[in-house]
Structures are given as C-alpha cells and as structure tokens.
Design a binder for these strands. Structure first.
Ligand code: ZN
Ligand code: ZN
Ligand code: ZN
Ligand code: ZN
Ligand code: ZN
Ligand code: ZN
Length: 1117
DNA sequence: GAGTTTGAAACT
DNA sequence: CAGTTTCAAACTC
C-alpha cells in the first residue's frame, strides 16, 4: 500500500489511514470488520457500500478495466465471430458466450477479429490511431511511412494468404501483446513459429522426416488448444503429446517439443493449468489473506462482477471480505472456468486492496470538485459521479485529439472528404462548429485514408509534392483513343522525350488531384515511395502553432476539390482542370458536400469524374478508379503468393491459419508398427471402428452391419442457428422433418411450419435441384464396362461396388476413412469423381494413375487417353443462389485447381430459345411446383418468421371470428327462441299449452320492452359482425393482391392464401392418418391412433372455420 | 462431456 | 470471380 497521506486533499473532516487498513472476516462471514487506525465505522460504511457496489448493478469492475488476458479471452479474436456484433451495450447483446456458461456477453467487450475481411473496421481505426500517433511523433507521415508500417504489421504474421496480408491484428496485440485464449483462429506470429511455441518442434520434425519440408498436418491454428502468445502460457518446459510420444518416443519429452493439448494431462498446457491452480490454492489457504495484485483479483472474480462462492458452500468463504448477499449465487469465475479449474473455492475478493485504496484516493481527490462525500460514496468503481468526471475529462481529451488529428490529416486547402463530405457542407460545418467549438472532424474515411488501399491522402502543408511531368499535365496519356485521334500530339510527345525536355510541375498529393495518368505514373509513384530522398522540402514540419493556425486557414476555405489552392505552387491549373474535366466545379466557393448540391464535389464524383490517387481505391463508387496500390500489390504478387499457398508450407489453403502440428512418415510408421493391410494393400487402422469400405473381405458383413445400423440409426439433429431449414441439418437434408429425437432449437422443420419449410425447400431446390435426392448413384459408365451384364444383374455386391457419390468428395485431411467424407459416410468407395487427397477409400488402388481410376474387382477403369492429355478429370461444383455455378477444375498432375464459374446469364441458350438456366427454373416450376412461380432463391429467417407470425395472426383472427360466430349463433338461437315463443305467447296465450313450462315461465317474464332490448342487442351484434366480416374479407383480398403483385418480393410467398393453408391442413391430416409422404416421427410417437382420429374430427370442423395450423392442433391431442 | 477437427454449405 | 465464414456433425480423449 503506497498511499501517501499527503495526497489527501484538505477539507476532509478526517483523514483515513489507509496505509494500515486491513480486512478481516468474522466467522459467519456476514459482516466484515475493519481494523487499523482508521475510523472503523466510517470505513466500514464506505467499504460496505463498495461491496454492494459490485453487485448493485452500477459501474463495477468492468469499468475499471479488464484483465487484458480476459478481454482477449472473451473477445473472439477469430474472424468469424466478428459478425456476431457483440455490442458494448450489454443490454443489446443477445449472444451467449459459451465460455462463460452461456451468459450474455458483458459490456465493455469488443469483439474484434484478427483475421478475415470482417476486420476492416477494426483495422482502420487501429491503423488510423497508429498513423496518427506516428504523425504526431515524427511530424510526418509519408506514403513510405504508411507502407512501412503496414509491412511491419504484416510481417508479424505467418499467414500468407494474400488477402490476409492486409489484415492487421486487432487491439489484442497492441494491448500488451497478448493473444487471448478461447479465440478461434489466429494469425500465426513469426516469433511463435520461430520460438516453437506450438505443438511441434521443427528439429524433431526434421529429424524424423529428414529433408522433408515442414508440411502442415493441420492448417488451422486453434487457440483453444494453445495458449500461445499469452505469457501465462508460454511454457518453460513442454511435454510432448501422447501421440507424439508414441510416435517419436522418449525424445518427445525434451524441451520445446510440444505444448500438447488441453486434453493431454501431460501437456504443457495442462501442467501450466495445474501449476496455476496449485499456486492459487496455496494462496487461498493463507489465513486472512487479502488479494494480492490485480491479476489475482481478476483471476478469481466472476464474469458478472459479482462475488463468487462455491455453490456447495454453506457459508461464504471467510477468507474474503465479501458481504453481498447477491453474491451467493454467481457463476464460476471466468478465469477459473477458462483455466479448467474446478468450480470450488470461488470466493471472491473484489478489487485488490491496493486498487481499492487507489480508487478511494482518487475519489477523495475528486471530492471538492465533484462534491462527493467520501463517507457515503461508494468507493468502488461504481462511483458514478467520479467516473462521469473522468469520462468528461477523457472526452475533452479525445475531442482535442480529434481536432488535432483532423487538422493534421487534412490538407492546407481543406481536403476533399469523400467519405464524410462535411467540409463543404455548410450545414454540416455549422453543426460541427457547434458541437466541436467550431472544429471539424475529419471523416472517418479520411482519417483512415492515410493508409494504402484506402481513399485519400491528406495534404500536409509541407508534404511531399509530386513532380509531374508537365508534358503530361492536361494530357491523357493513358487514353489510347486520345493518342489515336491526336497523332500529331503523340509525335510531339515523343519528340519531347527525345530531347529530354521533361519538366515537372508541383502538385500536391491531395486526393482529388489524383489525376489520371500523372500521379500514377511510375515516376511519381516512386517518388511517393521515396518522398524524402530527392526533395528535402517535402519534409513535413508542423508545429503546434501551425496546427492551431491551420483551423483558421481551413475555415476560410470555402471550396476545394482537393487541389491545394492554398499552396503557392507552380502549375498549370487550366490544364489541370481540363485534364480533370473539372469545368463544372472549378469555380471557387463551390460546395464539396451535400448530395443535393448538384455542383458539389460528391455529385461530381458520383458522375465518375473523379480519379483516384495512386494506391487508393475508396472514395465511393468510382467506376473508373485506378487499381489501388494494394490491389496492384496483390496482383503483382499473386503468382508468388499462390505458389506459396500451393506449396503449403505453413499456410492454409483455407483461410484458417496454417501451422504444422506434426508430420511423420506415415507409411514407415504403419509398417514399423505392424499395421495390417487388407487384400488391396490398404492399411487397416481401427481408429474409427469402421473398416474401410474397400475392405471387401468384410464388405458384405460391413454392409450388413451398415444397413442394420442405418435402420436403427435415428436421424436427429442438433441445429441451433438455422431453424433446421438449411442443408446443414441432417433431418432436413434427408427430407425428413425433425423429430422429438432432435435437440434442435427454434426448429421450423415441423408440420406447424410447413409453409415456411416448403419455402426453404423451394429456395434450396432452386439452387440444388437434387438437394434432397440420394447422393449416391450408379455410375453407368462403369456399369457398362462390366462385360458380363448378366452377372452384373445378378450380382448385388458388384452393383454395390458400382455405387458412387454423385459429386464426389473433397476430403483433404480425413483420408476418406472417416465419416467426414461423404463417400465413406454413404458407404461407397471414392471414385474419379472425387477430389480427395491421400484417399484411403479406394481411389488410389492400383499401381498407376492414382486417384484417377476406380478399381472394381481388381480391374481399373480410367479414361487413360484424357488423363494422359491432362484433361479435366473432376470438377468440384458449388451452386450459388443466383444460378451461377462455381467450378473448381481439377486436372491431372496439376496441383492448383482452376477456378471459374458458369454464369446464369451466360449465352447458353436452351433449345427452345431461352436462357438455359431460366429454362431450368421454368421447368422446375412446372414440374415440381404446379406451375407456381418460384421466387427468389434465397430466403431469410426473418422472412420465415414474419410469414409464420402472419399466419398465426390470421389464424387467431379466424379463431376470434369463429368464436364470435358461435356466440352470435347462440344469441340468435336464444333470441329466436324468446322471440318466437314470445309471439306465440302473445298469440296463443289463451290456449294454455303445457309444453315447455320453463320456457313459458321465462317467457312470461319478458315484457315487450325486454324484447325490444334484445332486438337492439342483436342488431348491434349483427352490425358488428358485418363489420368484422367486411374487414376480414378486405384483409384476404389485400393478401391475395399482395401475393399476386409481389412475385419478386421476398417477403411474400406465392401461396400465402388462406384457402391454400386450409388445403395444407387437410392434406396434412390425411397424410398423418395414412402416414404417407410425410415424416411424422415426432407426432406419431406421442399420439396413438385413436386420439389422432379424435383430433382429426375436431380439426376438420375447426379447419373449416379457421385458416391456419398450429403446433397445438396436432400435438395437443 | 468437453473440446477439437472437419469439409460441406452458405455467403459476399 | 474468387474467395471467406458459418455450420453442425464427426471425432478425440
Ligand atoms: Zn436440424
Ligand atoms: Zn432434426
Ligand atoms: Zn429441427
Ligand atoms: Zn472423401
Ligand atoms: Zn470420395
Ligand atoms: Zn477419397
């Protein structure tokens, strides 16, 4: 505790000696006492407040700061998760964090990715910050600088995906250089690789597989598996995984062999966790201890900022000064959870004492300003007022920074801000003026634009000027037609060049001045790359005064299009304007911003009249923009990068990060371990308990078992995000509805959702017409090659062998001998239709042309001629939603497949004249959907949900109507009874009939007045009913109209008609009874036949009256 | 049962 | 056009 008494501000009634403050829990743990030299009561109150503060929902530990480890651990570095949009506003988050017992993501968590395109936003702001800092520090930020910084960042990664090379690491790295755990996929740092933080040891690898380059066993790094990057998990000693030990023997125990996996109890990871746990427990057992440092405190603090107790504990852990009653039922701490520690002993200190006291001191320091009474103020971070003050301070600082940034990044002339377009927009200016004391912000895109691949360069006052060849100014060198038309000029140019009369005009690097050819000429580009070499005057020198003055300058500018009018540079503006065709906006005082301003720069830009400076490709929809520097870089390096990828040393062919795990001579291993082979020479490896489909000795037995297994096999899914309406769902894929065996959530693959389900089926069938067909079929060309046709007919086994997966598989890592492989899953051999690698499922049988033939009973079939020619052997296809087909063409002896596509709008004409794809859809509509027009082939979940809600609503309406009708009928009956009887009473009163004494009795009580009342009531009811009916019919009509008029509207279904729904319902019922055509697993299992019949009777009546179906209609009985 | 690996499906 | 990301199952220990 290093609190200095003299740090307390004066004016406090009492000074607390925090130096000797300590805590002690009593036995019950319900009250804490505080001993020391302080005023115990006051301190107690303070700290009690503070205690409750942790669970009272106010600001708490999150606001103080997360352990970066935990932030990283929570925040999903992996690219994919970034799209989950975890909100900093906890209340907005609906997403559950699997690493925190599926609790909601807390606030203050930013999910940022390292990898993947989804990282763009993060990268920009981060990079922007970096550049800004750089600019402030070095007083310059040239293109060279930006490129260098980019390269620096990229060089940290082993990821050689050329797209990924643009990706910057998220803040995780900058915040202490720590990768989190529990992230998915992470770029691989060079240092990690070089220092062998991973599971493999390069040297061992090399010694076991001499002269072999590192080959990735797994291309994907899963941070779950390794704690790499996190200093806590950098092992001092590593232990080989058992797998490695078994393969390479005792040497695996050497240092730096393997970090192993979490599951490996001998792995470094496990050891580390054990050590950690032990150390933690040791500490926890110290009596009356208080938490040591912040890390420890965080380590045992719950994710909810509440206080943890073990659920089994009868009383709070007396070791901690925790009083909160709410704290009794909190989840295991995230760190313990994350560390795989047991759930016990989770009693929780909150802030460390040191931190608490520091906070208190802080508050005390703030007291006079904030008018805080330290005796009653929660001294935890939940001190809202204090925080508010701090936040205000921060905001002011940020605003100041923002201003500086904006000025720094902006040109002296006021640069063109394509993204934000605020500069010339008077209204926006005024708005900003008010908001920011008159200062403008640079737009985000502008600020971000300092980097390559982005939009615009800012103009610094003394930033490198580009020397442009005057001969090019005003000329359109890059335009061939120009040259052709002006042959004379061309000659002139050549002459100029010959005479060496090239001269330069200085123009700025400002965005809009990125004229077509000049700026992008090699000379200029090179000069941009080396701005300080030849022209020392390019050196940026901005003083603080300059920055302060710049705003005034800027405000005096009313118009610019990026041409630096404020700089006195020598150039031919007339020619520039001609070249740029800027006539329309060359007048000064023209607005830049504002879409409504026809003369504005943005409007001009929208007309494709603006050009990009070298290397920047943003700035809107510039259809004739130049390729960005980055794009060029990619293009230029593509060959190299592709070859790197195809060599696949450490990089993935997927975007999952490459990394070697372990490589060994599999064959040697198999041989030396005496792994048996089958008659085809395949190694029989019993990992999967399923013998290979190629082991024909046991094939029959296998297949028999298979069939049995399949018969017993319950197809059930566990889908969570797709409503069981995508092919991901096994039930759906098999054309089945989900059953009660499924554990899916939010499932729409049920009868109640039949319409929505059919919608999904339509969409998918549009894409994959055979999506719900069998995936396996005979290969006719193979069958034909069996000479003995009669034998083929008779030989079921042979027929089975001729079955093949229609599309073939694409397995890379499972050797087609696990159920990952669709061929293996289907129980068929791989064929030449497959693109699998290292196939052990039959494709590689035979001595030659491995992978390009199929072996049947020892006989090879291969199109030798085409194979030898290197012709296409197999094509992987993937259909997209718009009828385009992505093709990956695999050719013999070609490592790199050729990727192309068939476009829907290609010139392929159907024989009857139409487009072949259009015709396919028309045919499908006619054949499979009774001529009904198929809508867009994509569907959204919300679309389905809306549709279902609509139906449900409709159903409820109808139900109301039905009830109303029933009620009405009842009343009419009653009325008729009364009325008729009343008449008869009047007419036949004298006859004294004895019928219906009760009625007579009641009727006799009715006066004429009563009857009139009832009449009036009935009229009212009838009136209301009429209105209702009218409304109902209008609704129906509206729906039908909508439906008919919106064939292209995704939000409407063609069959969204009430009568259709009725048909569906009846059809369902019939089918349910006959158990024909639908899968009613879920329902029949719970319903005996009798109750179904009863249900049907009820349903028929109800369905005549109502329009829609509901789960309960089918399930209730 | 929890965590990891996998390749097809989906998406842009 | 050429990828990246999502997904739920299969798999491992
Ligand atoms: Zn499902
Ligand atoms: Zn299911
Ligand atoms: Zn389901
Ligand atoms: Zn396969
Ligand atoms: Zn296959
Ligand atoms: Zn295969």
């Amino acid at each position: 505790m290093s609190i200095q008494p003299n740090q307390f501000i004066s004016g406090l009634e009492k000074q607390l000696d925090l130096q000797n403050l300590s805590f002690q829990s009593n036995a019950q743990g319900n009250n804490n006492s505080i001993t020391g030299n302080c005023n115990a009561n006051q301190s107690f109150n303070i700290f009690q407040n503070r205690m409750s503060g942790q669970s009272n929902g106010k600001m708490s530990i999150d606001s103080v700061g997360y352990n970066p480890n935990l932030i990283a651990g929570l925040s999903g570095i992996g690219g994919a998760d970034a799209l989950n949009n975890i909100s900093p506003d906890k209340s907005q988050n609906s997403i559950r964090d699997p690493y925190r017992n599926n609790s909601l993501y807390p606030s203050q968590i930013e999910r940022k990715t390292i990898g993947g395109m989804s990282n763009i936003e993060n990268r920009l702001s981060e990079y922007q910050d970096q550049l800004f800092d750089f600019g402030l520090q070095n007083q310059r930020c040239s293109l060279e600088d930006t490129l260098q910084m980019t390269a620096n960042r990229n060089s940290q990664f082993q990821n050689s995906s050329y797209l990924s090379n643009q990706i910057y690491q998220s803040n995780r790295n900058t915040n202490g250089g720590i990768f989190g755990r529990f992230s998915s996929q992470v770029p691989c740092l060079n240092s990690m690789y070089n220092n062998n933080f991973y599971s493999d040891d390069k040297s061992i690898l090399q010694s076991t597989a001499a002269n072999q380059p590192l080959q990735p066993q797994s291309y994907r790094i899963n941070v779950n598996q390794f704690g790499f990057g996190n200093p806590q998990y950098i092992p001092t000693q590593t232990v080989a995984s058992t797998q490695m030990q078994s393969i390479i023997g005792e040497s695996a125990l050497a240092d730096n062999v393997s970090m192993g996996t979490q599951n490996n109890s001998a792995s470094a990871m496990s050891l580390e966790v054990q050590n950690f746990e032990k150390a933690l427990l040791d500490q926890l057992e110290q009596p009356n201890r208080v938490p040591g440092d912040i890390a420890e405190q965080f380590a045992i603090t719950s994710s909810t900022n509440q206080v943890n107790y073990p659920s089994s504990a009868s009383a709070p852990n007396p070791n901690f000064y925790n009083l909160s009653a709410q704290a009794q039922n909190v989840a295991q701490s995230q760190f313990r959870f994350a560390s795989g520690l047991s759930a016990g002993n989770n009693a929780v200190p909150l802030l460390s004492v040191a931190q608490s006291q520091a906070n208190l001191l802080n508050i005390l320091n703030q007291t006079s300003k904030a008018n805080i009474n330290p005796e009653t103020t929660n001294i935890f971070s939940s001190d809202a007022q204090t925080l508010k003050l701090l936040q205000q301070q921060q905001q002011q600082q940020q605003q100041q920074q923002q201003l500086q940034r904006q000025i720094l990044l902006s040109s002296g002339s006021g640069m063109v801000d394509i993204g934000g377009m605020t500069f010339g927009n008077v209204n926006q200016q005024q708005l900003l003026q008010q908001q920011l004391n008159g200062y403008q912000h640079a737009s985000k895109s502008t600020a971000a634009s300092v980097g390559p691949g982005l939009s615009q360069l800012p103009l610094f006052d003394n930033m490198p000027m580009v020397n442009v060849k005057t001969e090019n100014v005003g000329e359109n060198e890059g335009n061939d037609s120009d040259k052709t038309e002006k042959g004379g000029q061309k000659e002139q140019k050549e002459e100029k060049k010959q005479t060496g009369s090239t001269s330069y005009a200085s123009i700025t690097r400002g965005a809009a001045f990125s004229t077509k050819q000049e700026v992008y000429s090699d000379d200029i580009f090179n000069s941009l790359l080396n701005p300080f070499e030849e022209n020392q005057d390019r050196q940026l020198s901005i003083t603080n005064d300059d920055i302060n003055n710049k705003f005034q300058e800027k405000m005096s500018l009313t118009s610019n299009i990026g041409i630096n009018r404020s700089l006195n540079i020598n150039r031919d503006t007339k020619k520039e304007n001609e070249s740029l065709n800027f006539n329309e906006i060359k007048q000064e005082k023209e607005s830049i911003g504002g879409l409504s301003d026809l003369g504005s720069a943005i409007n001009f830009q929208n007309n494709n009249n603006m050009f990009n400076i070298s290397g920047f490709n943003s700035g809107g929809n510039l259809s004739i923009q130049r390729a960005s520097n980055l794009t060029n870089f990619k293009n230029n390096n593509r060959t190299t990068l592709i070859s790197r990828l195809s060599n696949a040393t450490r990089n993935s062919d997927l975007n999952r990060i490459s990394f070697p795990t372990f490589d060994y001579d599999q064959k040697q291993f198999l041989e030396s371990n005496g792994i048996p082979r089958d008659q085809h020479g395949n190694y029989i490896i019993g990992q999967s308990n399923r013998s290979s489909a190629m082991n024909s000795e046991s094939l029959m037995q296998d297949e028999e078992n298979e069939r049995k297994k399949k018969a017993e096999e319950i197809i059930a899914c566990n889908c969570g995000k797709t409503k069981c309406l995508k092919l991901y769902c096994v039930c759906f894929q098999q054309g089945l509805m989900c059953s009660d065996q499924c554990r899916c959530t939010d499932c729409y693959n049920k009868i109640a959702y039949l319409e929505e389900r059919e919608r999904a089926i339509k969409a998918i069938k549009l894409r994959y017409p055979d999506a719900f067909e069998k995936k396996v079929n005979f290969l006719p060309e193979l069958a034909r090659k069996i000479e003995d046709a009669e034998r083929l007919d008779a030989d079921l086994e042979l027929q089975n062998q001729l079955l093949a997966h229609k599309k073939g598989c694409n397995c890379k890592k499972s050797a087609c001998k696990k159920k990952y492989c669709e061929c293996y899953l289907a129980g068929v051999k791989c064929t030449y239709l497959c693109r699998c690698e290292q196939c052990q499922n039959g494709k590689n049988d035979g001595p030659e042309n491995q992978g390009q033939h199929i072996n049947i009973e020892g006989q090879n079939f291969v199109d030798q001629e085409n194979y030898n020619k290197g012709n296409v052997v197999s094509i992987k296809t993937q259909n997209n939603t718009f009828g385009n087909i992505k093709l990956e063409v695999f050719r013999p002896n070609q490592q790199q497949q050729f990727i192309t596509k068939i476009e829907r709008n290609s010139n392929q004409q159907h024989e009857n004249g139409g487009n072949i794809e259009d015709q396919r859809i028309i045919n499908m509509e006619n054949d499979d959907f009774n001529g009904e027009k198929l809508n867009h082939s994509r569907f959204t979940y919300s679309e389905l949900e809306n549709h279902y809600t609509q139906r449900k609503k409709q159903k409820n309406n109808n139900e109301d109507m039905f009830d109303s009708l029933s009620q009405e009928k009842q009343q009419i009956d009653q009325f008729d009874q009364v009325f008729n009887t009343g008449n008869s009473v009047n007419q036949q009163n004298q006859e004294n009939t004895t019928d219906d004494q009760n009625n007579n009795q009641r009727q006799s009580e009715l006066t004429n007045e009563d009857i009139q009342k009832i009449r009036a009531q009935q009229e009212q009811i009838y009136h209301e009913h009429q209105q209702q009916q009218l409304q109902y019919m209008r609704q129906q009509q509206l729906m039908n109209n909508n439906n008919n008029n919106n064939n292209n509207n995704n939000n409407n279904f063609n069959d969204f008609q009430n009568n259709k729904t009725e048909e569906h319902d009846l059809k369902i019922e019939n089918n349910q009874l006959e158990n024909n055509g639908f899968d009613f697993n879920s329902f029949n299992q719970n319903n005996n036949q009798e109750s179904v019949v009863v249900s049907r009777k009820n349903m028929q009546f109800i369905n005549m009256k109502r329009g829609a179906t509901d789960d309960n209609d089918f399930l209730a009985n």
